[in-house]
Simulated scan of single mutants.
Amino acid sequence: MTKVSMTINGAPVSADVDGQTLLVEFLREDQRLTGTHVGCDTSQCGACVVHVDGKPVKSCTMFAAEADGSEVATIEGQANADGSLNVIQQAFQDHHGLQCGFCTPGMVMSTAALLKDNPKPTVSEVREYLEGNICRCTGYHNIVKAIMAASGQDVSAIAAE
């Protein structure tokens, strides 16, 4: 067992973990933060994206021990302080950027990283950035529209699908 300490969504956490414990398992099973989803176990789908020290990471590709000493942000930490949806979450709701919702946590976390680095992306840049996130329901059109809206750009010319 290895002792790990990190800050998750602003709260300090310490625990003993097996050296083979993936960060996604630690978050879901040990910390009961089940918003981070396991979609493929092979780093292909992006449903497990979290931020580690401000960078998006597929948490199925990282051991919990590798996050020792890090700041980790999950989908549970994305809401506003009063519990209301943040601008990205609200845009996904307003523009129907989700259907079943399975990919949504990873999409929201990826979007947060994109908008931090590129506050006004083009549609092409959004599509390119999301290449590591798979959605099997929406066809991406409304996800892209939601991201453009979250960036504060006019989406009135983007037709609904």
Rank of each mutant, 00 (worst) to 15 (best):
G39N: 10
G39P: 08
A91F: 07
G46T: 06
A67Q: 06
A47C: 12
G46A: 04
I75R: 03
G77I: 02
L27P: 11
G77N: 04
S43N: 13
A81F: 08
V52D: 13
P56W: 05
Q78W: 09
C40K: 07
A79E: 10
K58R: 14
G46P: 03
Q78H: 08
V87S: 15
I75C: 04
A81S: 14
C60V: 02
A79K: 13
H37P: 01
D30A: 11
G54H: 12
H51P: 01
S43E: 10
A91D: 12
C60S: 04
G39W: 08
P56H: 09
V38I: 15
D41F: 01
E76L: 02
G54S: 12
G35E: 09
T42H: 11
G46M: 02
A67E: 09
V87T: 14
T61W: 00
N86R: 03
D82K: 09
S70Q: 06
L85A: 14
C45M: 06
L27C: 06
H37G: 05
C60I: 02
A64T: 05
A81D: 15
D82V: 10
Q78N: 02
Q78G: 13
L27G: 08
R28D: 05
L33I: 10
N86S: 08
E29A: 01
H51E: 08
L85Y: 13
Q44K: 08
E76H: 06
V57T: 07
G46V: 04
L85E: 05
S84L: 11
C60P: 05
Q31W: 00
D41T: 06
D41C: 03
I75F: 04
Q78C: 11
R32H: 14
E76G: 04
G77M: 01
Q44G: 08
V87Q: 15
V57I: 15
K58Q: 08
C60E: 07
Q89C: 07
L33E: 11
A65Y: 14
C45P: 02
F92H: 08
C60M: 03
Q31S: 08
T34E: 13
Q90R: 14
G54V: 07
A47R: 10
E29T: 07
V72K: 02
S43W: 02
Q89H: 07
N80G: 04
A65I: 15
A81I: 08
M62L: 15
A81M: 09
R28I: 05
G77V: 01
G39L: 09
Q78V: 04
T42K: 07
P56Y: 01
S70P: 04
E29L: 06
T34F: 00
L85R: 11
T42L: 08
C60W: 00
G39E: 10
M62E: 06
Q44Y: 12
E29D: 14
F92D: 09
H51N: 05
F92A: 07
F92C: 03
D30H: 14
M62G: 05
S70M: 02
A64V: 06
H37E: 10
N86C: 11
C45A: 12
E25M: 09
G46K: 00
V52H: 11
Q90H: 01
D30N: 15
I75W: 03
A47T: 13
V72Q: 10
A91K: 11
D41I: 02
S59Y: 02
T36D: 10
G54A: 13
N80A: 15
E66A: 15
E71L: 02
A81K: 15
L33D: 08
D41S: 06
E25H: 14
S59Q: 08
G69E: 03
Q44S: 14
Q89R: 10
Q31Y: 00
E76C: 01
